[in-house]
Design a protein around this nucleic acid. Structure first.
Lengths: 212, 212
DNA sequence: TAGATTGTTAATCGATTAACAATC
DNA sequence: TAGATTGTTAATCGATTAACAATC
C-alpha cells in the first residue's frame, strides 16, 4: 500500500484512461501489448507509460511487454474497482436523474442507494426502484445506511450545505456537479465535474484555433 | 490575438475557474481585488495568478490590484463568452436530455438548435421546443444551419461516426460525453467529459486517503 | 543465444514559486 | 510622498523524455 504514496496527480488522472483502453483491448482478445503499441493507441509516450506503471511496481516483462489481462486487473486494484461502493444522489434535477439512470456505473460496482430532493413534486417519484426522498431525511438515512460516496447535483447555493451534511455523517468521497469549490476536511476527497467550465475550455480552444 | 499563442494547457484550464470566481465577486458587489485576496479565495498562489493574467497582458494596477468588473470582462473575452454559439446534441438519452435541459448554458450564450437520436420512440418528442430528429437528418440539418459546437451523447461505439459527420460538415468544436478518444483533424477542438473516469479518480483518491 | 522490451537513471523541459524593481 | 501591489525576471521544483543496462 505504501507504494501508492506520493503518486502525482498527473499520473492519477491518467490511470482511468489506461483502464479504459485496457478494457477495450481485453474485449478485443488482445493478450499482450508493449509500451510502444500502447503509446500508439493511447497517445502518451512509451517512456511515460513505463514510468507510470512503475510507480506501482513492475507489471511487465522484459522482451515481452505487458500481459493485458494482468495489467488491467492491477490497475483496477490500484483504482479500487475490485470493491463495491454505495452512493446517494442529492438533487434529482436533470443531472441528478441522468446520473441515476446512467447504467454504466452499476456495472463497475457503484450501487445507488438513495436519491434526495427538496422539490415536493419530485419526492415520492421512483427512479430505478428508488423513491426520491426529502432532503431532510438524509441525516436519518445516513445513520441507518452505509454510504461511501455522496453525489451532489443541487444548485451552487446549497451545495456546501449538502457537503457539510455528508462530512458530518462520515462520507469520505464527494462527486460534485455544482459549480462551486467545496470546503471539506482533508481526509474527504472531492472530484468535481464542472460542466460549464468544460464548455468554456472548449470555446477557448476553438477561438485559439481560429486565430491561427 | 497573437498574445493568445503558446498559452499552456495548465493556464487555459484555470481560466474558467477565474471566470466563475470573478462572476461571484461581481454578484457580491466587490469592486477591486488583489492577487493575494484572490489567492485566498481561489486557492492558487498569488504569484501564479499574476503570472496567469500576464499571459494575456496587464489587467492590474500597481498598488491597487485588479478591477473585478474589468478583469471579468477581459477573461470573458479571452474565453470567448462575448460571442454566442449554436449547438446541437446528438444522443437524447439521459445525458443528452440533461444537457438539453440545463439552463445555465443559455444564459452564457449557448443556443441549442437541434437534438438527434436513432431511437424511434424519441424521434418527434419535444425538449424545450426542439423536436428530436432522426440522426439521418444531421447532414441535411448542418448544411442548412450554422452550428458551432456539436455535443456527442451517444454510446461509445457510434461516437466516432458522429464526430466524422461533424467534421465533414465543418464543425470545429466537439463536446464529447462518450467514453472514447475521438480522432479528429487538428483544427477541430475536442473537450471530453468522461464521467466514469472522473468517478474512478474519486475512488482512487478515497482509497489513497484510507491507506494513510 | 539473439532480439526485444522492460525498469530505471539521467537529461531535458516546462510549470510554479520567490523575489524585487517598477509604479500607481 | 509612502505604502501597496503589480509585472516580470530569476530560482526552484516537478514532470516528461531520452537513454541504456538488465533480463526475459
Amino acid at each position: 500500500m505504501d507504494k501508492k504514496r506520493d503518486i502525482s496527480m498527473a499520473v492519477i488522472k491518467r490511470l482511468p484512461k489506461y483502464y479504459r483502453h485496457l478494457a477495450e483491448l481485453l474485449r478485443n482478445d488482445v493478450d499482450r501489448i508493449s509500451s510502444k503499441e500502447l503509446s500508439d493507441k493511447i497517445g502518451f509516450t512509451a517512456s511515460q507509460i513505463r514510468q507510470d506503471f512503475n510507480c506501482f511496481g513492475g507489471f511487465g516483462q522484459q522482451g515481452y511487454g505487458y500481459n493485458v489481462k494482468e495489467l488491467y486487473n492491477e490497475i483496477g486494484k490500484i483504482l479500487g474497482t475490485d470493491k463495491e461502493y454505495n452512493t446517494i444522489i442529492v438533487g434529482a434535477g436533470n443531472i441528478g436523474q441522468a446520473i441515476a439512470n446512467y447504467s454504466r456505473f452499476e456495472k463497475v460496482g457503484f450501487n445507488l442507494k438513495g436519491i434526495f430532493d427538496t422539490n415536493p413534486k419530485l419526492i415520492g417519484v421512483r427512479i430505478k426502484d428508488i423513491e426520491i426522498e426529502d432532503v431532510d431525511n438524509i441525516d436519518a438515512f445516513l445513520s441507518k445506511n452505509s454510504v461511501d460516496i455522496g453525489i451532489i447535483c443541487v444548485p451552487a447555493n446549497t451545495a456546501q450545505k449538502i457537503a457539510d451534511l455528508f462530512v458530518s455523517n462520515g462520507i469520505k468521497g464527494i462527486w460534485n456537479f455544482a459549480p462551486v469549490d467545496l470546503d471539506v476536511p482533508e481526509d474527504v476527497s472531492v472530484e468535481n465535474v464542472h460542466l460549464l467550465e468544460s464548455m468554456l475550455t472548449l470555446v477557448y480552444l476553438m477561438n485559439e484555433q481560429k486565430a491561427k
